[in-house]
Computed example of a mutant assay.
Amino acid sequence: MTQMPTNLKALAPDMGALPSLDQGRPDCGDFGLKIHRDGTWSYYGSPIGRKPLVKLFASVLRKEGDGYWLVTPVERGRIEVEDAPFTAIACERQGENLLFTTNLDELVTAGKDHPIRIEVDPETAEPRPYVMVRAGLEALIVRSVFYDLVAWAEERNGLLGISSGGVFFPLGPCEA
């Protein structure tokens, strides 16, 4: 008769922690998944309409220097991301903090660990704002939410910006 191991954690990894890429998982190549600029996911060109499935994929999403990967306990595969893997679709002020909601229902409070950054598109000169969601994965802040941030912004030292979590995030220069 086989005995059950006393340490069940030895059999099952901690599902709350993302697996590391360097633990010898076989590289399965391209998974055929793509995250579009608007936050929709597709599989070989067909949109994935089941949000719980997308949330499951997103839970094992990692960004490494050479791109984006889905990393499971037994394998890993590359996926394509057009811009950022998430979109910030809503933001509300809670006292001195900004609470963002992503397209996958994750809540992120902007601050030291979840900074807001602005990139300027070199072709159009339009701002592309982002907020860090987790472990190197950002959300593109949608235009309507960015307009809210600008409406709440204040001027400091010639910069228009917004504070959250005790950090001032510049949104851009003040126009004369």
Rank of each mutant, 00 (worst) to 15 (best):
A125F: 12
V81N: 09
A125S: 14
V145P: 00
E126K: 15
D83E: 15
A125I: 06
A84K: 12
Y43S: 15
T72Y: 03
I141W: 05
A125D: 12
I141K: 01
E64I: 06
H114G: 09
P47V: 04
L61S: 03
T87S: 09
R62K: 14
N103Q: 04
F100Y: 03
G95K: 08
L140S: 15
V81L: 07
P127M: 05
W41C: 04
F100W: 02
V120M: 07
P115D: 06
E92Q: 13
D148G: 02
V145M: 01
I141G: 09
F86C: 00
K63R: 15
D121V: 01
S46I: 14
L53H: 10
Y44F: 15
E96F: 02
G39F: 01
V74P: 04
G136K: 06
L107T: 14
R117K: 12
G77L: 07
S144T: 10
D148F: 02
E138T: 15
Q23N: 09
L107A: 13
A90T: 02
Q94A: 14
I89D: 11
V131G: 06
F100R: 03
E96I: 08
E75H: 11
K112D: 11
R134E: 13
P122H: 06
I35G: 01
V71S: 04
A90P: 01
E138H: 14
S59W: 02
R93K: 13
R78Q: 10
S46M: 15
V120I: 13
G29C: 09
E64P: 08
E119N: 12
G29I: 07
F86M: 02
D83L: 15
A139W: 11
V60I: 12
E82Q: 15
I116S: 05
V133S: 08
M132D: 11
L107Y: 10
E119C: 00
H36S: 10
V145D: 02
I79Q: 07
D30V: 04
E119T: 09
R37A: 14
W69L: 05
E138F: 13
E96T: 13
S144H: 08
K112E: 13
G45Y: 02
T102E: 00
S42Q: 06
I89G: 01
L56C: 06
F86T: 00
R117H: 08
S144D: 09
Q23P: 01
G65Y: 11
D105K: 11
L107R: 15
A88Y: 00
D121C: 01
D27W: 04
P52F: 07
P115Q: 07
A84V: 05
H114N: 14
V131Q: 06
K34D: 08
R76A: 11
I118Q: 01
P26A: 05
F57N: 08
R128C: 04
